[in-house]
Design a protein around this nucleic acid. Sequence first.
RNA 1: GGAGAGGUGUCCGAGUGGUUUAAGGAGCUGGUCUUGAAAACCAGUGUAUGCUUUUGCAUACCCAGGGUUCGAAUCCCUGCCUCUCCGCCA
Length: 476
Amino acid sequence: MIDIRLIRQNPDVVRESLSKRHDDTSLDAIIKMDEEHRKLLQGIEALRGERKNVSKLIGKLERDHILATLTSILSDCEDPARLPTVQIIKEIDNFLEQCNIKEPLKQERDQMISKIDEYIEKEIRKERSRRIGEEIKILEEQASEISEQLTNMLLWLPNLVQDSVPIGEDESGNVVTRHWGEQPTFDFDPKPHWELGESLGIIDFERGVKLSGSRFYVLKGLGARLQRALIDFMLDLHVNEHGYLETYPPFMVREECAIGSGNLPKFADHLYHDAEEDFWFVPTAEVPLTNLYRDEILDPGTLPLYHVSHTACFRREKMSAGKDVRGIKRGHQFDKVELYKFVEPETSNDELAIMMDNAETVARKLGLPYRILELCTGDIGFASSKSYDIEVWAAGCDEWLEVSSCSNCLDFQARRANVRYRPEPGAKPQFAHTLNGSGLALPRVVIAVLENYQQADGTIVVPEVLRPYMGTDIIS
RNA sequence: GGAGAGGUGUCCGAGUGGUUUAAGGAGCUGGUCUUGAAAACCAGUGUAUGCUUUUGCAUACCCAGGGUUCGAAUCCCUGCCUCUCCGCCA
């Protein structure tokens, strides 16, 4: 979420970022609502203060025994603030008569009569307080309606992009900044993974479709084993060599978690949702991880926090209908190892570079050639201020596959999920910065391994680092 | 799924309609004392928003959202969560 104070004080900075993203949301309505909201709040607070004081006075008066008796005697009368004195006296006499004991109460009668003016004053105060209450209620209704609209509009605003992000219309504007490794050459025609997988009997498309429909597949035998080996390898690498904490989160989360990460409300149609229990299926571990420390203030010295999670990811892929329908490149369910960091604001761009290297290390150790893309303003994600993609080369389908996208979200998600930290003991809490990146997405790494390590006879050489996990050096 | 109990500050914990401006204790920070430490004593110790921006001031927050009331931590309704017992289950 963008800080409303930034929009208030420096709207042009936000406008510029929006226009770079080709987001045509206007800030005018937001600014106007914010102004109106604050004006209402001021009115409400003043009225509440007044009511508080009046009520306090009433409380003091009601602690007076005589006044309290008088109040209870007259509690059935309508409009007590406007009762004529004569009638009040009559009611007092009625009451005393009902009590049947006349003499000892005579004194009390005089006391009551002497306090009639005070009583009336008190009732007038009550009436005034009641009227203030009504006024407050009206204003509160207005304020909460505006506040709800305002919050909702803010939730639809994408993060600011950093100045270093290249300007561009769409994915064609992304900039290739680096390459690593050599694309493999073959003395035969390299096959795509769907052919290899089928002929090796390790990917079963037909039965996947039978079970769950298009974009589902079944991994079997060494195919399933390969994916598991990759997961173990990646987790071990990030835990043992990069200092991440292995973390197993829920795969279904509450709505507020998906709001916290930035997936809701804007991208509801990308997510699976269980209507009965109102759970959202995670499209990436980023969603639960963002919310690990929601509504917390982390103690000084706690940051940075590094988490790595292997989860299944569920995506409706409605927007990509008809795209990448062959093979296992784009499914509704896939596994991913995700890197996530909570860091202090000053360090977040450096941390992004480190995270990139952590993710790249996976590809390097697997011997998969890759290139790095700096995402442009037209293609960068909603929550991100700066993103790099890692694409590995897949020799069979002859394309670069996105296997990771590493992003610095600044305080955008932390603000939504209310994740704060205290820089020093006693210092004011601040929003943390969050970063996320795949390290890496599994099916696409499986594709790259199968296609790049294939041999003329259709068998696959297992990359060196995976052999301890695979228990074999060839998939045949 | 059934029955019951509960949710108060950093923590423990009191509080059944109004000096609660949330008691008391612990912790933490600072100070006094001490050669030093401990103990004791004194003081301070939340978050958010708005207004002033030097000091401040105001409002809200006792799980969340509604309601009753002049006034709600307290009473009523709904939801969420935790615990105990039973049932079921991996």
